[in-house]
């Protein structure tokens, strides 16, 4: 990552879903975005605004219909084949036949690491997410928050240049979510990984990010980018600071201006629609 350019550069990215002879949906339109090394970028917007799709385009899990996606100076496909991405989904997606250790080792096995090195790295990663005592447990023996921490350890194990997180804490309760937010910040500060983070939650986006990318739906566009100048390290006092609330208001107004009414944010029917679109794209 000695390259001076941005880690991610999106130029004129469009994504159109056409389902058979059904309606054509413009999920993304004219997306331009540059992400510098070590940034923490949140993508926020109402359901159906294409933020998950944008994440998947960056990670080469789906192809853009038009435009360029350059990651670490390479096309996204090349970056994926070079294993530049770590992925964390809303669900932990752990393999229930593997222990915690086995799950974290999975990418390292695929990438051909020697067993001793795998074990060593897995131990480090599990210490990082504070699950070192659970190496031999199976996923179903862990709480949702713990499972998600295993998923984060797994994503970081091979030191990817970019961590892509798709609503990773969306399924957790508010208390756990706030704890996980602090934890992810701590990990980010320690590893220096570039993170792209999709979320529905305005406070979460503001608390975590260096910049919040606000998107609007149909077609999915970037309507504003809010710089978050909250001091670091951020912790509980941050959540009570005046600047924090000002930024939350700023993001909320940007969302409203873009046509993404705040009330629409948590509509589950729209959320499932977006997921269907995203899955349809994988084929």
């Amino acid at each position: 990552m000695s390259s001076p350019g941005p880690v991610v550069r999106l130029a004129g990215v469009d994504k159109i879903f056409a389902r058979g002879d059904g309606p054509v949906t413009a999920a993304l339109e004219a997306i331009d975005l540059e992400i510098a090394a070590g940034e923490f970028i949140s993508l926020i917007g109402p359901s159906g605004c294409g933020k998950s799709t944008l994440l998947r385009v960056i990670g080469d899990l789906t192809d853009p219909s038009a435009g360029d996606v350059v990651v670490n100076g390479k096309p996204a496909r090349r970056a994926r084949l070079d294993r530049d991405y770590g992925m964390v989904f809303q669900a932990p997606v752990l393999m229930d036949w593997r222990t915690v250790q086995g799950n974290v080792e999975l990418p390292l096995e695929v990438m051909g690491w020697a067993p001793a090195r795998r074990r060593e790295r897995t131990r480090e990663m599990l210490e990082l997410v504070e699950l070192a005592d659970f190496v031999g447990h199976h996923p179903y023996q862990l709480s949702g928050g713990m499972q998600q921490r295993v998923a984060i350890a797994r994503a970081l194990a091979f030191e990817p240049a970019i961590l892509l997180m798709d609503e990773p804490f969306g399924a957790l309760d508010e208390m756990t979510r706030e704890r996980m937010n602090s934890e992810v910040l701590r990990i980010w500060e320690r590893t220096g990984t570039t993170i792209v983070f999709v979320t529905h939650s305005i406070p979460e986006a503001v608390f975590l990010s260096t910049r919040v990318v606000v998107m609007s739906p149909r077609p999915g566009r970037i309507t504003r980018i809010v710089e978050v100048d909250l001091p670091r390290p951020r912790d509980e006092p941050t959540r009570e600071s005046r600047r924090y609330f000002e930024l939350i208001t700023e993001v909320r107004e940007a969302l409203r201006a873009g046509g993404g009414l705040a009330t629409e944010l948590d509509d589950p029917s729209i959320a499932s629609d977006e997921r269907t679109l995203a899955e349809g794209a994988v084929g």
Partner: peptide
């Protein structure tokens, strides 16, 4: 298999064998 696991394997650039 969970289709998201397949995406995970894809993000690791895993071979068909893996």
């Amino acid at each position: 298999f969970d289709p998201r696991s397949m995406e995970l394997m894809r993000s690791y650039a895993a071979s068909d064998w893996h």
